[in-house]
Nucleic acid binder design. Structure first.
Length: 433
DNA sequence: GGGCATGATTGCAC
DNA sequence: GTGCAATCATGCCC
């Protein structure tokens, strides 16, 4: 007990005796003001402390009564302020300084991701942007719309669950915080709890709940990732291209048989026309080249078919060109036939034939085009009806496009590297081979 | 269900 | 990065 008094008197340099300490509860009244009262005051404080220390050893009723007595004790405010002062000067203030945490980068990442996926933040169609982007890279527009809506529905479910759970957590956090604050305020009547400490406690609670929230966000992110991967897997499922798309690709392939390497621009145009992606066009040409090379005999029939088709188109173009040259009205060319291409700078004769709308379709060039198209017809007829080309031109739809090494003769100079300055009907034209 | 067709993927070379 | 070759996986037809 003396020890307690000694501690209280010296702790933190606070002189308890300086405070007005008089009378109270069941304590003996203070002694006089002379020097002899020193021991008495010490005894007084010691008694209070003793009561505080032993309050838990007593029954509830007794404790309540003593608690009330202590609350009403005249020394209580002084003792209270001293204890507050001590608390301020000890670890609390140090800890308080350390609690200013920077924003958690992981949490920020999660928040950003949830925002980007349309899970967090205002609803913007439930991640339609992500789904649309994925759909754009897919092959079949009809199936995409189904997958798209499916993806959106599932993402919407995730969003709903996320917000419900988040709301629950926030509600629980608020309730718990209020409860703890009330408790601390209540306790602050009997023990020194500064507003700063309450604030700190609220901070701790919020941090605990944010770590739970982070787990929720993490789980949501994982769910979105799984959904996405499933969606992408679904896209990976093979689907045959439409007949029209295959026809367009075949037409291009067989009309460029001597050099079936479409330029990037041509690929893009083909992709657009076929409603597939550029990489799908690349895949298609890769597969086609290898399979054609492996089994030329089998593809010969197909080649002839497309050759005949091309010839018909060419014939129409020739007729139109002749008519145009006769009437000398190059500014009013015939419209292109269905399935024609309009690929800028491709350097392919096929294009110039099929695209009489081109700006370059003028004057002297008309004659050259007509001649090329006539040649094409000759080659086609030679393949389909045994026409013997008296000019000794290459057979357009024969395997002659392949060299002895199994590669295409001009495969080293694919159309992708043809100079853009070359106009239609250039020497790289397949039909001129 | 089996066989073929075909789009996609992978590993390699350049 | 592109193309080739092999292979896988799925769709389609019988």
């Amino acid at each position: 007990m003396d020890e307690q008094a000694r501690i209280m008197q010296t702790l933190g340099g606070v002189n308890l005796a300086a405070h007005a300490v008089q009378g109270g509860m069941a304590l003996p009244p203070p002694h006089g003001h002379d020097g002899t009262d020193g021991d008495g005051r010490k005894q007084d404080i010691g008694d209070i402390l003793h009561q505080i220390m032993t309050i838990t050893d007593q029954s509830l009723d007794e404790a309540q009564a003593k608690k009330h007595g202590l609350n009403c004790h005249r020394m209580k405010p002084a003792l209270f302020s001293v204890l507050c002062e001590i608390k301020e000067k000890t670890g609390l203030s140090i800890r308080g300084a350390q609690e200013e945490d920077p924003p958690d980068p992981q949490l920020m990442r999660l928040d950003n991701m949830l925002l980007a996926e349309g899970v967090a933040g205002p609803e913007k169609g439930g991640g339609s942007a992500a789904a649309a982007a994925a759909a754009a890279a897919s092959g079949s527009p009809t199936d995409n719309s189904i997958e798209h809506s499916d993806y959106r529905a599932k993402l919407s479910q995730i969003r709903q669950i996320y917000h419900t759970e988040l709301e629950k957590y926030e509600q629980a956090c608020n309730e718990f915080t209020t409860h703890v604050m009330n408790l601390l305020r209540e306790q602050s009547r009997t023990r020194p709890i500064s507003p700063k400490e309450i604030e700190r406690m609220v901070g701790i609670i919020h941090r605990k709940f944010s770590s739970i929230q982070m787990q929720l966000k993490q789980s949501t992110c994982e769910a979105v990732m799984i959904l996405r991967s499933r969606f992408l897997d679904a896209r990976r499922k093979r689907r045959n291209f439409s007949k029209q798309a295959t026809e367009i690709l075949n037409e291009y392939f067989y009309s460029h048989l001597s050099n079936p390497y479409p330029s990037e621009e041509a690929k893009e145009e083909l992709a657009k026309k076929c409603s597939i992606t550029v990489s799908q066009v690349s895949n298609w040409f890769g597969n086609k080249r290898i399979r054609y090379k492996k089994n030329i005999g089998k593809f010969q029939e197909e080649a002839n078919l497309y050759a005949a088709k091309t010839a018909v188109n060419a014939a129409h173009a020739v007729a139109a060109a002749v008519q145009n040259s006769q009437t000398n009205s190059p500014t009013t060319p015939n419209s292109g036939s269905s399935g024609s291409f309009n690929l800028p700078n491709s350097g392919d004769m096929f294009m110039s034939m099929q695209n009489p709308n081109g700006d370059s379709y003028q004057g002297a060039q008309v004659g050259a085009n007509v001649q090329s198209q006539v040649d094409t017809l000759r080659h086609v007829i030679s393949q389909t009806a045994g026409y013997n080309d008296p000019l000794g031109g290459n057979s357009m739809y024969s395997p002659h496009g392949l060299n002895a090494n199994g590669g295409w003769q001009d495969a080293t100079t694919p159309s992708s590297v043809i100079s853009p300055t070359e106009g239609p009907g250039s020497v790289h034209s397949d039909t001129s081979n």
